[in-house]
Design a protein around this nucleic acid. Sequence first.
DNA 1: GGCAGGAAAGGACAAATGTCCTCAAATGAT
DNA 2: ATCATTTGAGGACATTTGTCCTTTCCTGCC
Lengths: 190, 190
Amino acid sequence: MDKFKQFLKNISPITDNEFADTISYFSEQNLKKGDFFVKQDKVCQNIAFILKGTLRTYYINEKAEETTSCFCTENNLTTSYKSFILQQPSNLIVQAIEDTQLLVIDYENLQKLYSKSTVWQTIGRVVAEREYIVMEQYASVLNNETAKEKYLRLLKEQPNVLQKANIEDIASYLGVTRRTLSRIRQEISK
Amino acid sequence: MDKFKQFLKNISPITDNEFADTISYFSEQNLKKGDFFVKQDKVCQNIAFILKGTLRTYYINEKAEETTSCFCTENNLTTSYKSFILQQPSNLIVQAIEDTQLLVIDYENLQKLYSKSTVWQTIGRVVAEREYIVMEQYASVLNNETAKEKYLRLLKEQPNVLQKANIEDIASYLGVTRRTLSRIRQEISK
DNA sequence: GGCAGGAAAGGACAAATGTCCTCAAATGAT
DNA sequence: ATCATTTGAGGACATTTGTCCTTTCCTGCC
């Protein structure tokens, strides 16, 4: 729980009292490997802080191909942000790829926090700005990096993910087929 | 100018008086073909509504390759949003690809509007949300569409751009070389 | 009008990636 | 423990895309 307090403090100063007062709006949720946090075509009602575990965010296009857009890890937020903001059905699917422990708040409760607390207004805005910037960064990576560069970045920035995710998922994150990922690993290992 | 009023009304109800009161914070700016609206590595001080013309948004990576991220057209906003929000040097370059007429506001004046007007607070938030969603959509296109599909989308959604931009720019928007764009046009024409 | 320079199309070959497949190792169920 | 199933590695060939180059067309300039 301290991890979450620290996470919030990094966004905006929050006293221990304020934290204690608002934490009651959150609840714990545990997911087994393979469980869904957000299902396709359902409105995403929740945003969660990851206490422990890893989730994969992906979508399925008309050709029935999966694209993994990110792996969400400990001490970060996870949600289907567009669906959550607009309260519309979600294109994205969010699924635990190992047993995962979350601190969850739903849309209604977050609106309550916004209206009762200026600290939470700031947190809401900063989170939105960060999400925009993360998405811009992601688009930049998609444009500029080869699959091999993306693999090396993953290896450096999220080495645990390479252990936890399967080859299919990693390939879909890199935007190539399993066969090409196999070739990339072969090149790197020599 | 009516176009701009209409643009704002589509976001949040704004009376003619409110509009008249706030429009003085904006100024007109004219760009010749080839002029820059945002230069690389400069902090983007402005956000603009495009009264007339077309701009290209692009960046240059370490390999000195250009990537065009969007073509901005009439009745839309243009800026280097990340740079503008964070008031940090811009990776993006925004350049007019034909003579262009803008309605411009700078960072300071926009902050003034935010603090004096709740309508503008709403406009600011909705614009931010829209920018996030546009960026998510862009990332989705990058992941799911082939160069040919992107070309056909451009043909449908922004046919004028195909007239105004040169082959090099369009190819960099599609994420392929000129040679591949040439092949795509050949395929489509038969 | 003729000429220089730039812009677009497309030929030829090389490199990268996808498709389809097989094999071996790891994992799970009985 | 054994057998079936899943998962990852990698071979063979086809397809796609890039690189390099040439040709043609268009435009502006003298």
